[in-house]
Computed example of a mutant assay.
Amino acid sequence: MSSATGATRLGWFRTGWPRGAFGALLGIALAALLGHLIPASEGLPWIMAPVGASAVLVFAVPASPLAQPWPVVGGNLISVMVGMAVGKLCALGGIGAPVAVSLAVGGAIAVMALTRCTHPPGGAAAILGAMAGIAPAAHLPGPLAPLALNVIGIVGVGWLYNAATGHPWPHIPVVPPSPAPIRTVTYDREDLDAVLADWDETLDVEPDDLDALFRAVERRVLRRWEDDHK
């Protein structure tokens, strides 16, 4: 096998689904292993469903703002605590589970936004917390303990694995210096596609949306340039 062919295959692994799939396999394996530290007498599951969704984000789109360490940790753990608090209050007030889970998810979204840790799996964590909180035999820490152990596994593997496969995590975008404003220029769609390929990152933004954004920025810059030179 030529070196060029080997580099091509390695590049496909670094950006394609095999990299994300294998990383998620490792992350969930450690999450499950840590989850078994919870005593069986507690009657709690050793793996929590939200970490499966977290693994997709951490390993498949590690550059996404929703997949960074603080959103993963805060989004899951804060949401499950919000859910537990809402569930307990609803249980005390005689409010049923459908209302409890609705309030829990809405409250979790609000708290995640305020604490800058929006993470989609947090919605599932809030539902888990609400269902645990409204249960007659509910007691602390409830699902918080296994979820915390699961999250530690995902974050630990995410940090090591993403860095080892060329995707440092937390993601820090490399912004090149701005060129000297010699003249107003534009770009072709092929330029955008080439830059995305060079970046070697999977973003959770469609290229068409990026193109629309950059075209809007171009038009704004052009209008400002025209106003400055009237």
Rank of each mutant, 00 (worst) to 15 (best):
R183N: 10
L160F: 13
N150D: 09
I172S: 14
D198F: 15
D191N: 14
V82G: 05
A145N: 04
A125I: 12
A148Y: 02
G133Y: 03
I127R: 02
A113F: 14
L103C: 10
A126H: 01
A104D: 09
V82W: 04
L128I: 11
T165S: 04
M81T: 14
T165L: 06
P177D: 13
A130L: 11
L128V: 08
S102T: 15
I152T: 02
D191L: 11
A124M: 10
A108H: 05
P141C: 11
N150P: 05
G129P: 05
P121S: 04
L103P: 00
L77I: 07
L160M: 09
G156V: 10
D191P: 02
G129R: 03
G122H: 04
N162R: 07
G129T: 00
R116F: 10
L114A: 15
H171N: 08
L144Y: 03
P141L: 12
P176C: 05
M81E: 03
P146R: 06
A104N: 09
T184D: 14
P143D: 00
A164L: 13
Y161N: 08
I78A: 04
P121F: 05
W169K: 07
L147H: 02
M131C: 07
E190K: 14
L196H: 07
R116W: 07
G156D: 12
D188I: 14
H171V: 10
I182H: 13
G123C: 05
G153P: 09
L89W: 07
G94D: 12
C117V: 13
L89A: 15
L196T: 06
P136R: 05
I172G: 06
A108Y: 04
V105A: 08
C117W: 04
V86N: 01
W159R: 04
P173R: 06
V151D: 00
A126F: 00
D198V: 15
H167Y: 03
P176I: 06
G96Q: 10
V185M: 11
A113G: 15
R116H: 13
V105Q: 01
W169R: 00
H167E: 05
L192W: 05
A132G: 08
L89T: 09
T165H: 08
V185R: 13
L114R: 14
A100C: 01
A130N: 01
G106N: 05
I152V: 15
V185F: 12
L147M: 09
V175Q: 09
G129S: 00
V175W: 08
V157Q: 06
G133C: 13
S102G: 15
A130P: 00
T118A: 15
I172N: 11
A145G: 00
T165Y: 02
T184R: 12
G142H: 11
T186H: 08
G93F: 10
A130D: 01
V195L: 11
P141N: 08
V155F: 00
G123M: 09
A164N: 07
H119M: 04
P136Y: 10
R183G: 15
V185C: 11
I172F: 11
P177I: 09
G107D: 01
